[in-house]
Design a protein around this nucleic acid. Structure first.
Lengths: 123, 123
DNA sequence: GTGTACTTGCAAATGATTTGCGTATTTAGG
DNA sequence: CCTAAATACGCAAATCATTTGCAAGTACAC
């Protein structure tokens, strides 16, 4: 099934991918329709095999759910994204939980700025 | 100008608003077109008078730029949003800056879960 | 084998947001 | 006050990522 191809692309990727990234990648090997990619992606997300995160650019990015919890440094110039694992949000989340009673189950964190490459090139 | 009406709605709001929220609110008093709202909103964002944040629901939310730095607790059931000012991200950001050289200029943080009301009603 | 349940492709629909374009309205300079 | 250049608007059509309806294809159960 095409589902497996799609899942593998995500599994073998170092970064999070857009539906289009995945479509392009899978298309190199097999015929597949974009809507199939979207449908499959939604299935995988529902089964908690894949995480979906909507970024400020309004595009959804997908990555393996069992990956170590990651957040991205997104360059506003070249739009590249570096993952970082520094995340002390859980502490904050716990504090908020206790103080407000809001039952936090997940969070998204996105850093924006300019990456080293773009900083260099700007000179 | 309608710009002022739009700006005031944002200014007088306790929470961040969508373009549609703003449109509905302004429409109660004066005639205005949705595209005018969007255009004005973009102007205000460019002038740094208003901040725009795209949430996981893929909708842009707007709030006064000079507001104290806020993040929202978003209920996945009723979609309500409570602001919280607990934010120690700047420390993390500085650490990342030093260790990676990525020049972070801003960040977005969004907590998801179930609010107290929905927790109650679920019982 | 026959049915029932997924899986797919294709084309059309969505929904938030943007844009082109022609018309008002504001603002600056004389 | 008066005209020109700059903005602000309204309206309709366009975008673009994503979803959906529908009909055909494929898989697996009994």
């Amino acid at each position: 099934m095409k589902k497996d191809y799609i899942y593998n692309v995500i599994k073998n990727s170092q970064t999070s991918l857009t539906a289009e990234d995945i479509y392009n990648n899978v298309s190199q090997n097999i015929d597949v329709n974009l809507s199939t990619v979207y449908r499959t992606l939604n299935n995988l997300v529902n089964k908690n095999l894949v995480n979906k995160v909507v970024r400020q650019d309004k595009i959804a990015y997908y990555e393996l759910a069992q990956d170590t919890h990651k957040h991205y440094l997104i360059c506003d110039k070249c739009n590249c994204a570096f993952p970082t694992q520094m995340c002390t949000i859980d502490k904050i989340a716990n504090k908020i939980k206790k103080e407000t009673g809001f039952n936090i189950t997940s969070h998204t964190l996105e850093f924006h700025g300019i990456c080293q490459n773009c900083l260099k090139n700007a000179k």
